[in-house]
């Protein structure tokens, strides 16, 4: 008997009932998602974008925030950030055409992060106001390692792509990407005596640039 049959057989024997009706199981699972407001925190501000902006700079996420009206202004915002941290104008740019077609004159750009990369810029597909999370789907335009190797992680996000809650993302996510990365802050650890230190393995700094109409 294969291990699969052994394990599944033992599970079925333990449950001691005929195989369940898939439709009934699915209906029961759906019912467990009813009334999501009863089980999730309410947003502190009614507007999801305002709630997101407040959340990412709060100690819970600990990111820094900049705002621009249009994606064209992104290189300027990045320049400001790098200058503020006395970093050279060099960065890994997510292989996203929307980013590569911007005017990066004066920057040294790379598609893939080096092991000791100082800064990487990406574009999040969505933001989640409830947690202050940035959502990435891996693929031809998004390398996973770019989110993790650099010391400074810079992320552009359109205001229009901010969703209120985690369930709202689940509803629009579509088929699962190979990697779905929810990034909610810089890398941190409390493994030595419970004291919080940033930059454990991943980025020590997270900087979010919100793109779009000014927040209400």
């Amino acid at each position: 008997m294969s291990a699969r049959e052994t394990v599944l057989g033992a599970v079925r024997a333990a449950l001691g009932r005929p195989r369940p009706d898939p439709a009934a199981v699915a209906a029961e699972a759906r019912a467990l998602l009813a009334d999501p407001d009863a089980i999730r925190p309410s947003l502190p501000l009614p507007d999801p974008a305002a709630a997101f902006a407040a959340r990412v700079v709060s100690p819970k996420v600990g990111a820094t925030l900049d705002r621009i009206g249009d994606l064209q202004e992104l290189p300027g915002a990045v320049r400001r950030y790098l200058a503020g941290h006395e970093l050279p104008h060099a960065l890994t740019l997510q292989p996203d055409p929307a980013l590569w077609r911007l005017d990066w004159t004066g920057f040294e750009l790379r598609e893939a992060a080096r092991p000791d990369e100082a800064a990487a810029l990406g574009r999040a597909r969505w933001g989640i106001a409830e947690t202050g999370s940035l959502v990435f789907h891996s693929g031809p335009e998004t390398a996973v390692l770019n989110h993790f190797l650099a010391l400074h992680h810079l992320v552009a996000l359109r205001v229009a792509d901010i969703l209120p809650h985690l369930e709202d993302y689940a509803a629009v996510a579509g088929p699962a990407p190979r990697n779905l990365n929810l990034i909610t802050g810089a890398s941190g650890t409390t493994d030595i005596e419970g004291s919080y230190v940033r930059g454990a393995h991943g980025p020590a700094f997270l900087h979010v640039v919100l793109v779009g109409a000014p927040l209400p």
Binding site: L33, R40, P41, T131, A170, A176, L182
Partner: peptide, 29 residues
Amino acid sequence: SLAHAFAMLRLLVRSATGADLTQYTTFHC
């Protein structure tokens, strides 16, 4: 499903470390 995982993550992370969500929450498919 993913939505059920989110409901569980809210409980898991707060109970473990007191954060609302871990910094890196990844679904490998």
